[in-house]
Amino acid sequence: MTALKVENLAKTFQLKKPLFRATPPGVRAVRPMSFDVAAGETLGVVGESGCGKSTLARMLVGLLEPSAGRIEIAGRALDNADPEEFGKLIQYVFQDPTSSLNPRKTIRQIIEAPLKRLYKMPKEKREARISEIFDSVNLREEFLDRYPHEFSGGQAQRIGIARALAANPEIIILDEPVSALDVSVQAQVLNLMEVLKAEFGLTYLFITHDLAVVEAVSDRILVLYFGAVVEVGRADSIFANPRHPYTKLLADSAPVVGRPLTAPEQKGSELPDPLNPPTGCAFAGRCPRATDLCRKTDPVLEKMGDDQFAACHHPL
């Protein structure tokens, strides 16, 4: 079963028209991309800052209107960017746990909101449901009447997860859910999410820039570069056998105990400029295998071995 299906989804941010000049072409934050997530799967999404991870996520939950393409969740097409409609099917866990909780509301008010607004649940039922959810995320019920600043990062993130669960969604998007947390707490939260996934039959989209974390929690991994999918593959093999040169660069750059320190990339290579995008493969400026073909035509995603797709003219 497919929980989430994305077809040719794209987002271009229009820039302001300068006085006396033509409107600039706009920033193509997400270039047309298609992928599926199976029910019960965890799909990891990795890429460097600015590659469009958060724009993609915000379109998927309806906070941002796509410029093109369609989104289908559990067989229903949703493309009107209405968070109220999306909210019952797909929810979001934010990167910064404290800034995602309103400092002037109690935890109870925060978790109650989806039950009240999305499901119009009466009071007694809400109470029961909240204690059930709080129990699932291992928080004590006495926390319900406190304010967000009284919690540590790890606790606040569990409250954020509880709020997402309260909407009873099919899919949860986790946008860097542990990067603001300490390593000792990071593991607590990641393990809890694994348990919740089984308990509530969830599907996850896990966005991060930490390769080791994404590998540890995902079934499949999607590598984004400059707004486009450059490689998709199984989590246990993609970094060991990358086909796209960018995936290999990522894997080689990750600091690993016992590997000597080297800069895997040539000195002086520069990232592509979103306002003035290069023609052809966006990675060509940094790629050791780049040829004239790469600089002319944009490669498309092609199947390369079982379960692995890469967008490259000269794959590894």
């Binding site: 968070p83 909210g87 979001y92 934010f94 607004r117 999305l118 709020r163 909407a167």
Partner: peptide, 8 residues
């Protein structure tokens, strides 16, 4: 954003 996703 979270409030919007809660259906407010």
């Amino acid at each position: 954003d979270a409030a919007r996703l809660s259906g407010m």
